[in-house]
Design a protein around this nucleic acid. Structure first.
Length: 571
RNA sequence: CGGGACGUAGCGCAGCUAGGCCAGCGCGCGGCGUUCGGGACGCCGAGGUCACGGGUUCGAAUCCCGUCGUCCCGACCA
């Protein structure tokens, strides 16, 4: 047997595939399958094969080191969690769609943990008594379960996935700020060490809740999120959170209201074309059902409603577009609906409606629109707020610059939770003055499989993966050509031993395969450094060295390889 | 959950519309031989409950009904 960090390809449990399984969509997913990193077991459920698992564990280890470095303590919490704990926070119902629920033989309800706020808060309330016990950073690397409505993109959105989750507990707001800052800094080091270019962006906190939150994104076309960035001041936010300066529409004097006949005109585009006016001179009406209650949302015609902003504003669980029946039942005329003269239905208006004037809006009668609608002269909203989706080219909310939208892939998320969980679960401590206070919490996640998938997604060429060195399954691909030649065989074995003994992680292709097969597999697997030994190199007493990301190779003398390796592996 | 598609060997697919000869092809896999610096070649060979259950029929991979699984598009997320 050989020692742990190296492997012979003739022994490796896995096989490279020439053709990717049909279920793979993205290039990264195809490569992960073809290279034999993972294999799908069921929808959104994957097995890691030895190569993939090595990378996974390297990522895990980097995370572990950085968490430990900021004084966090590792523990392990159960996957199987009792219903009662989730009822304390109300999430048994509110986390609804993705929560995996089950019953034991006595009919007792349990769930498979999608996250661990409830469990960790329970632990802390039993152990923390005093401000002297704080601050506290606890983390685990644990499998999570989420019954996603639709698993997708291989490891990118799985139903079972590995995640590092850390929770911070502080006595004061300043303390929480400090913990949050510490963890965010550690995250930066983690992604740097993994060799992945990241961007931290302001984010919405979603179902985890909380007030302040940052997402760590990898930018690139494979992303399923949209990132809004200012080229000048560095403002960056998830598009669902992003604020923007709306293009200001010049004001004229408010003119008097009148009706216009608009036969068959149902959409903003049609309305603008029919009347020969720009879309930003119209008002758009959109109807939502917020926890079953009908909402009339109004926004300037050229803008789009940001449903996340709207949901946060309404503080509702469920927000969806209202059905045709619901709209009809409320007496609204789709296509000509108007906030003017509307009663009985709450109106939520984007602040853009107060910025311009003399808009064209619906007339609440089929084929009739109103001209010169002005806010607040002709209608008022229950709430006037920013509910618009930021657009490419909009103004930066912080500086005179303008915003651009790019694709991003979320690999980490940090939240300030405050007392969102400690209050309902009564996780309290006694402060300096002997007063009982709820603990201030933060929570911080990194999806490990997702990070692995993202790394492959963003580091490949047409031949295969190009691993960042820190998370490659092995660092050196030792490729022996013509191993049936006794001299080559002997020299290659010697080299393999020498490389291992000098502490390198080597994948040794000792198979009796043709050169083409070996080179193609080496490119597919994408280890950072390829070393070729063959009758040809050996006749010159050489080996050939090539970095995966480089085009060409160089030779070095057989004897000098081990000594010279650092210059190839550096950076 | 709504809309669409698919399920035939480890992987990629054909056959199904107009039921019927031994269920095929490429890759991969095993043996022998010739090759050997970018997925070599020849010969021989192994491997299939045609997703599952029911039905129609003399006869079903093929037609009908049901179930399950998988993928894609939309709303949710690390």
């Amino acid at each position: 047997m050989e020692n742990y960090p190296s492997m012979r390809m003739s022994q490796l449990f896995t096989r490279t595939l020439r053709q990717a399984p049909a279920e793979a969509e993205s290039e990264g997913h195809r490569l992960a399958l073809r290279a034999g990193l993972i294999r799908q077991t069921a929808a959104g459920i994957y097995s890691y094969l030895p190569l993939g698992w090595r990378s996974y564990r390297k990522i895990e280890q980097i995370i572990r080191e950085e968490m430990d470095a900021i004084g966090a303590q590792e523990l392990s919490m159960p996957v199987l969690q009792p219903r009662e704990r989730w009822e304390e926070t109300g999430r048994w119902e509110s986390f609804q769609p993705p929560l995996f629920k089950l019953r034991d033989r006595r009919g007792h309800s349990l769930c498979l943990g999608p996250t661990h706020e409830e469990v960790v808060t329970d632990l802390v309330r039993h152990h923390v008594r005093s401000y002297r016990d704080l601050p506290l950073l606890l983390y685990q690397i644990q499998t999570k379960f989420r019954d996603e409505l639709r698993p997708r993109g291989g490891l990118l959105r799985a139903r079972e996935f590995g995640m590092k989750d850390l929770y911070s507990f502080d006595a004061t707001e300043d303390g929480l700020d400090e913990s949050y800052h510490q963890v965010a800094k550690a995250y930066e080091r983690i992604f740097d060490r993994c060799g992945l270019p990241w961007l931290a962006v302001e984010a919405d906190s979603g179902p985890i809740g909380g007030k302040e939150s940052l997402e760590f994104m990898l930018l690139g076309p494979a992303g399923d999120d949209e990132v809004v960035r200012c080229g000048q001041c560095g403002y960056a936010a998830n598009r669902e959170k992003a604020r923007a300066r709306k293009v200001h529409i010049a004001q004229g004097a408010p003119a008097s209201l009148y009706e216009v006949s608009t036969p068959g005109v149902k959409t903003i585009a049609a309305l603008a074309a029919f009347l020969g006016i720009p879309e930003h001179k119209t008002l758009k009406a959109v109807f939502y059902a917020a926890d079953g209650r009908l909402i009339f949302a109004v926004i300037r015609g050229d803008l789009t409603i940001n449903e996340v902003k709207l949901r946060n504003l309404l503080q509702c669980q469920e927000l969806r577009l209202a059905s045709d029946e619901e709209v009809k039942l409320a007496g609204l005329v789709a296509g000509s609906a108007s906030p003017v003269g509307l009663t009985g239905i709450p109106i939520i208006a984007d602040d853009s409606v107060a910025d311009g004037n003399n808009f064209v809006a619906g007339g609440n009668r089929s084929d009739i629109h109103l001209v010169n609608v002005n806010y607040p002269r002709d209608f008022t909203a229950e709430t006037l707020a920013d509910i618009a989706l930021a657009r490419d080219g909009d103004g930066c909310p912080r500086c005179p610059g303008s915003l651009q939208i790019t694709k991003g892939l979320e690999v980490g998320h940090v939240f300030k939770l405050g007392t969102l969980y400690s209050e309902p679960m009564r996780a309290t401590f006694l402060d300096r003055n002997g007063h009982e206070q709820p603990v201030l919490m933060g929570c911080y996640g990194i999806g490990i499989g997702r990070l692995l998938a993202a790394a492959v997604e963003q580091n490949h060429d047409e031949r295969g993966i190009i691993w960042p060195q820190a998370i490659a399954p092995y660092t050196i691909h030792l490729c022996a050509l013509g191993v049936d030649n006794g001299n080559v065989h002997q020299a290659a074995e010697k080299l393999y031993t020498a490389l291992r003994d000098s502490g390198h992680e080597v994948l040794f292709d000792d198979r009796l395969e043709s050169p083409g097969v070996k080179f193609n597999d080496a490119d597919l697997l994408g280890l950072p450094l390829r070393v070729v030994i063959s009758p040809r190199t050996l006749s010159n007493d050489c080996v050939e060295v090539k970095r995966r990301r480089d085009k060409s190779s160089t030779s070095t003398s057989y004897g000098s390889l081990v000594q010279r390796l650092p210059e190839w592996l550096r950076s």
